[in-house]
Protein backbone atom coordinates (compact mmCIF):
# COMPACT_ATOMS: atom_id res chain seq x y z
CA UNK A 1 0.00 0.00 0.00
CA UNK A 2 1.34 3.38 -0.96
CA UNK A 3 1.00 6.60 0.94
CA UNK A 4 -2.68 7.56 1.09
CA UNK A 5 -3.50 10.09 -1.58
CA UNK A 6 -6.70 12.03 -2.07
CA UNK A 7 -7.29 10.58 -5.48
CA UNK A 8 -7.30 7.09 -4.12
CA UNK A 9 -9.89 7.70 -1.46
CA UNK A 10 -13.35 6.33 -2.05
CA UNK A 11 -16.49 7.25 -0.24
CA UNK A 12 -17.88 3.93 0.79
CA UNK A 13 -21.40 3.69 2.18
CA UNK A 14 -21.84 2.71 5.77
CA UNK A 15 -24.23 0.00 6.81
CA UNK A 16 -26.74 2.56 8.04
CA UNK A 17 -30.22 2.42 6.55
CA UNK A 18 -30.32 3.68 3.00
CA UNK A 19 -32.47 6.70 3.85
CA UNK A 20 -29.67 7.90 6.12
CA UNK A 21 -26.83 6.88 3.84
CA UNK A 22 -28.16 8.82 0.86
CA UNK A 23 -26.74 12.29 1.19
CA UNK A 24 -26.97 14.90 -1.48
CA UNK A 25 -23.25 15.43 -1.91
CA UNK A 26 -21.93 12.00 -1.11
CA UNK A 27 -23.30 9.42 -3.46
CA UNK A 28 -21.23 6.88 -1.68
CA UNK A 29 -20.05 3.75 -3.38
CA UNK A 30 -21.27 0.44 -2.02
CA UNK A 31 -18.59 -1.88 -0.78
CA UNK A 32 -20.87 -4.80 -1.59
CA UNK A 33 -21.23 -3.80 -5.25
CA UNK A 34 -20.63 -6.91 -7.35
CA UNK A 35 -17.40 -6.67 -9.37
CA UNK A 36 -19.54 -7.10 -12.48
CA UNK A 37 -21.17 -3.75 -11.83
CA UNK A 38 -17.98 -1.80 -12.39
CA UNK A 39 -16.72 -4.18 -15.08
CA UNK A 40 -19.88 -4.17 -17.18
CA UNK A 41 -21.63 -0.87 -16.50
CA UNK A 42 -18.50 1.11 -15.77
CA UNK A 43 -16.81 0.34 -19.07
CA UNK A 44 -18.90 2.72 -21.20
CA UNK A 45 -19.97 5.25 -18.59
CA UNK A 46 -19.34 5.93 -14.93
CA UNK A 47 -20.88 3.16 -12.80
CA UNK A 48 -23.71 5.40 -11.66
CA UNK A 49 -24.65 5.49 -7.98
CA UNK A 50 -27.71 3.23 -7.64
CA UNK A 51 -29.28 5.89 -5.41
CA UNK A 52 -29.97 8.02 -8.48
CA UNK A 53 -32.95 5.99 -9.73
CA UNK A 54 -35.87 4.25 -8.06
CA UNK A 55 -36.20 0.47 -7.85
CA UNK A 56 -38.82 0.21 -10.57
CA UNK A 57 -36.71 2.29 -12.90
CA UNK A 58 -33.64 0.12 -12.38
CA UNK A 59 -35.78 -2.94 -13.09
CA UNK A 60 -36.86 -1.36 -16.35
CA UNK A 61 -33.30 -0.39 -17.33
CA UNK A 62 -31.99 -3.85 -16.56
CA UNK A 63 -34.84 -5.52 -18.46
CA UNK A 64 -34.09 -3.63 -21.68
CA UNK A 65 -30.30 -3.82 -21.99
CA UNK A 66 -30.55 -4.75 -25.66
CA UNK A 67 -31.98 -1.26 -26.23
CA UNK A 68 -29.89 0.70 -23.76
CA UNK A 69 -30.15 4.38 -24.66
CA UNK A 70 -29.27 3.72 -28.25
CA UNK A 71 -26.76 0.95 -27.60
CA UNK A 72 -26.91 -2.81 -27.20
CA UNK A 73 -25.56 -3.54 -23.73
CA UNK A 74 -27.00 -7.02 -23.27
CA UNK A 75 -25.40 -9.30 -20.70
CA UNK A 76 -25.44 -12.96 -19.74
CA UNK A 77 -28.54 -13.62 -17.67
CA UNK A 78 -26.59 -14.50 -14.50
CA UNK A 79 -24.56 -11.29 -14.66
CA UNK A 80 -27.62 -9.24 -15.54
CA UNK A 81 -29.50 -10.60 -12.56
CA UNK A 82 -26.59 -9.98 -10.17
CA UNK A 83 -26.31 -6.35 -11.24
CA UNK A 84 -30.07 -5.81 -11.27
CA UNK A 85 -30.40 -7.15 -7.73
CA UNK A 86 -27.66 -4.82 -6.55
CA UNK A 87 -29.18 -1.74 -8.22
CA UNK A 88 -32.72 -2.47 -7.06
CA UNK A 89 -31.50 -3.21 -3.54
CA UNK A 90 -29.76 0.16 -3.29
CA UNK A 91 -32.16 2.26 -5.31
CA UNK A 92 -33.03 5.79 -4.26
CA UNK A 93 -36.17 6.56 -2.26
CA UNK A 94 -39.23 7.56 -4.32
CA UNK A 95 -39.49 10.75 -2.27
CA UNK A 96 -36.25 11.92 -3.90
CA UNK A 97 -35.99 10.38 -7.30
CA UNK A 98 -39.68 9.95 -8.09
CA UNK A 99 -41.50 6.70 -8.55
CA UNK A 100 -41.51 6.99 -12.33
CA UNK A 101 -37.95 8.24 -12.58
CA UNK A 102 -37.44 10.83 -15.22
CA UNK A 103 -38.86 9.06 -18.23
CA UNK A 104 -39.53 11.65 -20.90
CA UNK A 105 -42.78 9.95 -21.81
CA UNK A 106 -44.66 6.88 -20.65
CA UNK A 107 -42.86 3.76 -21.76
CA UNK A 108 -39.55 5.52 -22.42
CA UNK A 109 -36.46 4.56 -20.47
CA UNK A 110 -36.03 6.44 -17.21
CA UNK A 111 -33.24 8.95 -17.08
CA UNK A 112 -31.38 9.63 -13.86
CA UNK A 113 -30.68 13.12 -15.18
CA UNK A 114 -34.41 13.91 -15.26
CA UNK A 115 -35.52 12.92 -11.78
CA UNK A 116 -36.94 15.64 -9.51
CA UNK A 117 -33.86 15.34 -7.30
CA UNK A 118 -31.35 15.71 -10.14
CA UNK A 119 -33.27 18.60 -11.67
CA UNK A 120 -33.40 20.45 -8.38
CA UNK A 121 -29.73 19.91 -7.62
CA UNK A 122 -28.71 21.23 -11.05
CA UNK A 123 -31.23 24.03 -11.50
CA UNK A 124 -28.56 26.73 -11.20
CA UNK A 125 -26.26 25.27 -13.83
CA UNK A 126 -26.27 27.58 -16.87
CA UNK A 127 -27.36 26.14 -20.21
CA UNK A 128 -23.99 27.00 -21.74
CA UNK A 129 -22.27 24.58 -19.37
CA UNK A 130 -24.62 21.73 -20.29
CA UNK A 131 -23.99 22.29 -23.98
CA UNK A 132 -20.22 22.61 -23.64
CA UNK A 133 -18.51 20.18 -26.05
CA UNK A 134 -16.62 18.54 -23.17
CA UNK A 135 -19.89 17.55 -21.48
CA UNK A 136 -21.59 15.72 -24.36
CA UNK A 137 -24.39 14.36 -22.14
CA UNK A 138 -25.89 15.38 -18.79
CA UNK A 139 -25.05 11.92 -17.47
CA UNK A 140 -21.33 12.67 -17.86
CA UNK A 141 -20.99 13.32 -14.12
CA UNK A 142 -17.20 13.48 -14.28
CA UNK A 143 -17.31 16.42 -16.68
CA UNK A 144 -17.83 18.70 -13.66
CA UNK A 145 -17.77 16.50 -10.56
CA UNK A 146 -14.06 15.84 -10.54
CA UNK A 147 -14.32 13.01 -8.02
CA UNK A 148 -17.50 11.39 -9.28
CA UNK A 149 -15.71 8.11 -9.91
CA UNK A 150 -14.81 8.04 -6.22
CA UNK A 151 -18.44 8.62 -5.20
CA UNK A 152 -17.86 12.20 -4.08
CA UNK A 153 -19.98 15.06 -5.44
CA UNK A 154 -19.11 17.87 -3.06
CA UNK A 155 -19.60 21.40 -4.35
CA UNK A 156 -16.02 22.39 -3.70
CA UNK A 157 -14.85 19.63 -6.03
CA UNK A 158 -16.87 20.94 -8.96
CA UNK A 159 -14.93 22.36 -11.89
CA UNK A 160 -17.11 23.47 -14.79
CA UNK A 161 -16.02 22.46 -18.29
CA UNK A 162 -14.43 25.82 -19.02
CA UNK A 163 -12.36 25.60 -15.85
CA UNK A 164 -14.53 27.77 -13.58
CA UNK A 165 -14.98 26.72 -10.00
CA UNK A 166 -18.57 26.37 -8.84
CA UNK A 167 -19.72 29.20 -6.62
CA UNK A 168 -23.07 29.49 -4.95
Amino acid sequence: MNTPRMLNILLVCSLLPLSVAVKADDLCLFANAPPAYQAECGSCHIAFPPQLLGAGDWRQVMATLDRHYGDNASLDEAVRRTIADFLVGHAGPPSKVGAGGGAARPGALPRLTATPWFTRKHREVPRADWSHPKVKTPSNCGACHTRAAQGSYREREIVLPDGRRWED
Binding site: P4, N8, I9, L10, L11, V12, S14, A21, K23, D26
Partner: peptide, 13 residues
Protein backbone atom coordinates in the same frame (compact mmCIF):
# COMPACT_ATOMS: atom_id res chain seq x y z
CA UNK B 1 -18.56 9.07 12.73
CA UNK B 2 -20.80 9.91 9.83
CA UNK B 3 -22.48 8.15 7.01
CA UNK B 4 -19.42 7.17 5.07
CA UNK B 5 -16.19 5.46 5.87
CA UNK B 6 -13.09 6.10 3.89
CA UNK B 7 -11.25 3.18 2.48
CA UNK B 8 -8.24 2.97 0.25
CA UNK B 9 -8.44 1.34 -3.10
CA UNK B 10 -6.60 -1.88 -3.32
CA UNK B 11 -5.24 -2.81 -6.69
CA UNK B 12 -7.39 -5.46 -8.27
CA UNK B 13 -5.41 -8.47 -9.39
Amino acid sequence: KGTAIILLVLGTP
